[in-house]
Nucleic acid binder design. Sequence first.
DNA 1: AATTATTATTCAATCGATTGAAATATTTAG
DNA 2: CTAAATATTTCAATCGATTGAATAATAATT
Lengths: 341, 341
Amino acid sequence: MNSRKRTTIYDLAKELGISPSYVSKALSNHPSVGDPIRRRVKEKAEELNYKHNSRAANLRRGKSRTIGVVVPHINQSFFSDAISGIEEICFAHNHSLVICQSHESYEKEGKAIETLIHQNVDCILISNAEETMSADHLRQITKNKIPVIQFDRCLDAFDSFKVVNDNRNVSYEAASSLIREGYRNIAFLGGPTGVKAFQDRKEGFITAIAEASLPIPYNFIVDNVLTRERGKQAALPLLRLPNRPDAIFTVSDHQSLGVMDAAASLGITIPSGLGVFGFADETFAQLVTPSLSTIDQHSMELGRKAAELYFQRIYEQDEMPETETIVILSEIRIRQSSRRQ
Amino acid sequence: MNSRKRTTIYDLAKELGISPSYVSKALSNHPSVGDPIRRRVKEKAEELNYKHNSRAANLRRGKSRTIGVVVPHINQSFFSDAISGIEEICFAHNHSLVICQSHESYEKEGKAIETLIHQNVDCILISNAEETMSADHLRQITKNKIPVIQFDRCLDAFDSFKVVNDNRNVSYEAASSLIREGYRNIAFLGGPTGVKAFQDRKEGFITAIAEASLPIPYNFIVDNVLTRERGKQAALPLLRLPNRPDAIFTVSDHQSLGVMDAAASLGITIPSGLGVFGFADETFAQLVTPSLSTIDQHSMELGRKAAELYFQRIYEQDEMPETETIVILSEIRIRQSSRRQ
DNA sequence: AATTATTATTCAATCGATTGAAATATTTAG
DNA sequence: CTAAATATTTCAATCGATTGAATAATAATT
């Protein structure tokens, strides 16, 4: 009762005068256990406050019923919403979640993966850090027979299931909307070039500009400036040019914030003097002034799909199935920052 | 090599022609293993891509080296920062983290706790949901010999280690600053009354108002309206009163957002027509217009302290030590929303 | 060379649950 | 009232690592 240790099936077995294995079967509703005994066992379990030890069970089963998730930051709406989606599906399948943050660092990402491998998780869902250019750490995962599902920020160089938005399309649309608003000199701030999502956003942007026969000066395309601070540092020189951009399309709302910082420090007003378009529809996007036009990635849906992919396509398969890329449709949210009129 | 299963110490043992237990000792740098063998074992481990299975080891050890964390939402800066602090300390002690969200629901909180108990975590750090009034679920935890540390939103009725801010003091200061700015008719929107942090914030507020000999009409104190929406619904009737408040002090930035919504819908301008003070210094607080005066809870520090409490006071003790409450100093951040001049 | 002290290595039990096979009990059929 | 069929219950191995005790091998001491 007041021993230091928790109640186990052995304790229940002794109390009830039956064997531990029978207790186990009773608790897991094994068909060979009759109703009256099953009830007695469960009552006793309740009485002694027995709690199933998943870890012991999972060791035996060879599965941990745990999914590992690695994201750059849990406090960005896109990721926390995606995690909520993942959580929802995992919960429905009685799996738990170990969440790690890479803080955009390749080194921390590697360590997180290492931990998850040690934890013997059944699958790793990952959205790569900004710094991440190599897929070596992902290869470590597959070397250990753990399936990998990349979402949003996927490394092109690494073959795995992938869940992404229709980045090309939606960026095309967003850029087109800027053009429709009358902006003519549009610059682009991008992310890590090894990540397909960012490549696609750039391509969609360029296609829209090219189709409208607008110029794209080489220095109007800046890659690898994903954060607020780097966005600001990239925007400043652009906005100081004699023929400066009259709009900037970015691949993240945080970058847009940086652009707004830069504009403010140069006394440029948004949207009249500069149009700004973000990506991800972070919580603050509708709170800033002017409110930020952006793209709703349906991140919770994206998270759900990523988790479902595991349960539907990988779980209980003993061969690793052919990989596939799932596309989640996103939507543009036009707010004040891109409305010239 | 291409078998389905991961390499274990048994595989290494067979390859090297030594016993599994010796492999284990070599890998964990047991003093009875000589240098040359240790090296050979480690090389072979590297070669066969052996990864230590923490779960198996922890089953044997009786500890899981895993800490469970339950928070209302991971996408609020306060919580995600606290988690970052917790993560930092746990990482330093080679422990991993299972993070659960209650989504402010008592039921989900209970289920999260249930999962964590099954997962056999070594300690549970929790910040309670808005709905949570009873401590029954926390008692479940201690019944299973798992130590509990409450942080920020602590239930008064449940005795445990607690880590909180100097809520009373800082609220007193914040209210005083509103008074200094010339606001005279200040209302208060609070949180769940069973939670000490919210009681203290209310007390600090009331003390400041009383000391300044200002009136506090009974209906100017509204409890239990923690979210943005509920904050808005609470603010609307107040702002429609003939003798309406000229400032509102809230216990969360989200509530403040609700107040701002209400003010906007009634055409009241902030800060001239209404002063607003928040709590927690969420990311958006400095982004909204006008920027929101609020309180920096030093949440990362708070998270760190909570985790350290476990490692310093509970870990390796076999008796549960006398509980204690740790106070983290917070700071007021005065921005535009409370500056009348 | 025999004895003791040291060092290296293996044995065997253990953590808590699961599971197929084996053993036992009970029911049904002939 | 057996034999066969069926339903209960237990055995024993297993998952992967750890650890104190036991044993084997080697070195040091006299």
